[in-house]
Amino acid sequence: MKKKNIIGVLASIFLLMGVTLTHAYEAGEVPNVGTIHGQVIFSGTPQAPVQFAVEKNPEICGQERSLLKVETHNGFLVGAVVVLENVRKGKPFPTQAFRGNLPGEGEFRYEGGNSLGLRVKTKGCNFGPFTGVIAADEAVRFQNQDTIKHVLHSFVSKDTKGRILRTVHNQDLSPRDEIDRVFPSDKMKDGVVVRIICNRHDFMQNWLYVVDNPYFAISDQEGRFRIDEIPPGTYTLLVRHPVLGEQRQEVTIEARGDLQVGFQFVNE
């Protein structure tokens, strides 16, 4: 009986390891890759930025700050996060950096390689752009380049808009300090988005969508996005925005194909 139990436990462990391995993304050469590109259209009345009177550290943060939660340009949506789901093998994670809106010089930098390698450079009371991406189970480096303290508070949510937010980390980010924080998958569970805020400066708010592969893009000033080097196959393409929600499409990438898709969000 005991022997059977041991075999059962070992079998379960191997099974779990197998499940884990099959879910891990693997960087490697894939032939005949294709591309998706498109635009995210916004229709309706653009939202006005939320205005904040700066109470703490105006000498660093400025006297007034605003937060534009839905950024549009000529009818296109800026900062929508486009994610291709369930790609298990393909290109390495790219190296890229995205600046936050002025004032402030916050930046999300993705080191790339075998992992996403997110670095959050906080400067001028700005973590970085309003939206970005994050990966579970790898360290995110938070660098405070300000000479004041920030209190980094991160939450995870199971839905795109973050209706129920669960605290993941809540801790001081001392002046000129940097800390590494892992967002463990057991804590993230089926969370799709991480919200980060500063408890001392309420205009510092950002949304990071969870990705497990490098096939993501963030719509630019013209609402455009492009994801390349995609292995041929059928996938779910998601577009997510913290205020406008989520849209999805089934897409099929042909060998060496170039697929154009479009999304439209309506602000009622």
Binding site: F155, R163, I164, T167
Partner: peptide, 17 residues
């Protein structure tokens, strides 16, 4: 969470700050 959503609010769990 449902009650908060009806009011257009977010429910925050685990914030001891």
């Amino acid at each position: 969470g449902k009650r908060a959503e009806k009011k257009g609010e977010r429910l925050i769990i685990g914030n001891f700050y």
